[in-house]
Amino acid sequence: MRLIFFFTFLTTILLQAYEIGRGYKLHDALHLGGYFSTDYSNTKEKSLFRLDDVALLAYGNLNNELSYLIEMEAAPFYTYEYKTEKETKDTYFHKERLYLDYKYSESINLRIGKQITPIGYWNLEPINVLRETSSNPILSSEMFPKFLSGIDIYGYIPSFDSISYHMFGQKNKDLDEEYINIKNKHFFGLSIENESNFDFLYGGSIGEFISEDNKRSRYLSFNLKHDVGLLNTQAEAVISNIHDNNTNKSDYKIATYIQPIYRINSQNSIVARYEYFKDNALNIKRNLGLLGYSYRPVYSVSFKGEYQIHSNSNLNKFIISFSVLF
């Protein structure tokens, strides 16, 4: 009887504190949430089902200045390949983000720990449920490390009220080396963004990193976002000079995309994307166009479908996905 009373009480408390897409607010110092996504993709070569991301989030304010965020993620949690009937599981939860934020003033704030690298737009909202396509552009995985295990000093530039900056650096291994697209021990960069108008944002980044295979990349990126009425357009471009310290040879890599989204109403959107990618050293050149549809019964629940047409038709792909932020 006591147990029933306890669980009823607990459920009531939790339900009162819960809001879909905003997590459980148990205290100002403790919000709990998470997300997951599943997708099914089909190409000429394979058909794949994935329970891709399963992640748990905790964050909160420790006092007026200090806050924290912890995100643990297992991905791909489960995959099933239809033709070979091969099943894989990876249920180990990696440290995706783990940082402390110190808010000192309008112009100087500090973030220490493993965090999303503050470059462009896509990288800052990388999870399925926050995107309008199931897939990511090539730019998001090939041009710079997605995460930074170091320090980011950020804020607004004094006397340039609407320009924000991030100045970041890392001189150590990633906090979870198994869980980063480009392993490195040296990463420094600067990003700026003009926020003078809420509907039209633009900015850029410069930086340098040295990957585990001793290649030094120096990148320059541009990004813009225009969101007026029913049409949202986002574009990013990154060019990178890569110097191989082993062979002493240099080469370059370019990645760019433009993505317009047409909102039919608050639940339904049509999305298109064009991408261009060139890796001169590896002699890889790709053009890709996609058309997709997104349905959100509420913003934090997303159903999406897309068809990709690649310059190499063997890579053409159909993807549907379902994702939730809770």
Binding site: Y59, E125, L130
Partner: peptide, 17 residues
């Protein structure tokens, strides 16, 4: 609706309304 989508994105970044 736009505010709801805004705060959902902020939840991912560890920011509450």
């Amino acid at each position: 609706e736009k505010l709801n989508s805004f705060w959902t994105k902020q939840h991912f970044h560890g920011i509450s309304p």
